[in-house]
Amino acid sequence: MEALNLFLKAAFVENMVLAYFLGMCSYLAVSKTIKTAFGLGLAVIFVLGITMPINWLINEYLLSDTGIFGMDLTFLRFILFIAVIASMVQLVEMVIEKFSPSLYNSLGIFLPLITVNCAILGGSLFMVSREYSFGNSVAFGMGSGFGWFLAIIAIAAIREKIRYSNVPPALRGLGMAFIITGLMGMAFMSLMGIDLGV
């Protein structure tokens, strides 16, 4: 139950994109059409959901002073976390290339860039600083992935429509995307306080 609560909180209240602005680069760059946004969103859910538990295990059993080396190795945290993420992204890339070449082509450069998607590393670092348990880290990973997915789908849909509106030329494209994101962030704030009351 606590895990479910955390899932909802990570997906809606503390949404990675709209509350912390993590993963903005690919969020802004890939959100021009819903189709590519959908594919990237799924990839992010997968990568976040997998790397979070792996990084939890690494942090608990390799890096902490109660782990197998018996000393405090937390200064290696960044390097190990990013290595896990990079290899997982490589895996996802190979899977997508095999099963859906069209999606692979449309995602292009942004697939390897999931490695440097701040939402992924940020999720792992939040998990460490908030001291989640293993179960909670899985829930948090899936939840924040799902929240990212929702946010990118929403803005892609809005950006597809806003193409027909009369936006000032200097604000067209990027500028408008920022302002829409701000408005969406405020809308998501109204979900604050969601709690299953466990």
């Binding site: 602005f21 500028g175 701000g182 962030g185």
Partner: peptide, 19 residues
């Protein structure tokens, strides 16, 4: 103080710069 405001400000900065 809300995070959303930084989005608006950056949007406006882009607007000014591109004008």
């Amino acid at each position: 103080v809300l995070p959303a405001s930084s989005m608006f400000i950056i949007g406006i900065i882009i607007w000014v710069q591109r004008s």
